[in-house]
Amino acid sequence: MKILVPIKRVVDANVKVRPNDSQTHVDTANLKMAVNPFCEIAIEEAVRIAERGVATEVIVVCIGDTKGQEQLRSALAIGADRAILVEAPTDLEPLAVAKALKALIDKEQPGLVILGKQSIDGDNNQTGQMLAALCGMPQGTFASELVISDGKATVTREIDGGLETLKLGLPAIITTDLRLNEPRYASLPNIMKAKKKPLEILALADLGVDATPRVNTLKVELPAERSAGIKVASVAELVDKLKNQAKVIA
């Protein structure tokens, strides 16, 4: 069984972003980029499944800027076997990403696809669910535990009320939540080895995807800032303020 892991190149979670001067888009020039944290968890999970002998090959794919090769190399260093870069506009919408991924699935025929639940730039939380719809596959989103056996995936999902467990027929689409695993750091020898692993470069047009944007971004702005309040000196003063100034407790 092959596992396909789509990963996104995003601005590092610790970097503060700003709009450009004309407030038409996010200014990402010269910012530190990284693998989307949820995708790191997806890579780790796929590699663990392969290490247990349940999968034979882990293929990572990144769609976007050609610099996504950096993120693909780091996925290869964690243990993925092969990488595909699909060159495309960086701000491709989730529906177009899902269509491109479907074309790759048709070609590669993976038994399992593991995505992140959410990209931390667009905060869309859509691509995995859309891909499942387009492929007519079952979906296990926001996974905190994944067990593959007897041609089925048993997925524990983090939902608002607690946890839920589903059993999915394979092939299936999984999206990762934070508690699925703790991604390893790549070792130096593995980083060196990753440089020699195969990395194929495709163009979006090769996959026959119509990526015409459906949504126009009219404006990008900073939110209204919340101003800092006061420091209180004691618990007694805090209680007094909450009761008599803010009036939020009786």
Binding site: E93, P94, L95, A98, D123, N124, N125, Q126, T127, G128, Q129, M130, L131, A132, A133, L134, Q139, T141, F142, R157, E158, I159, D160, P213, R214, V215
Partner: peptide, 21 residues
């Protein structure tokens, strides 16, 4: 919510619509 986030993108893709989250 986790309900809507799980469900609605699947609907959107079947309708060939780009959802707004």
């Amino acid at each position: 919510t986790s309900f809507g986030k799980n469900l609605l993108p699947r609907v959107a893709a079947l309708l060939d619509v780009q959802q707004i989250s």
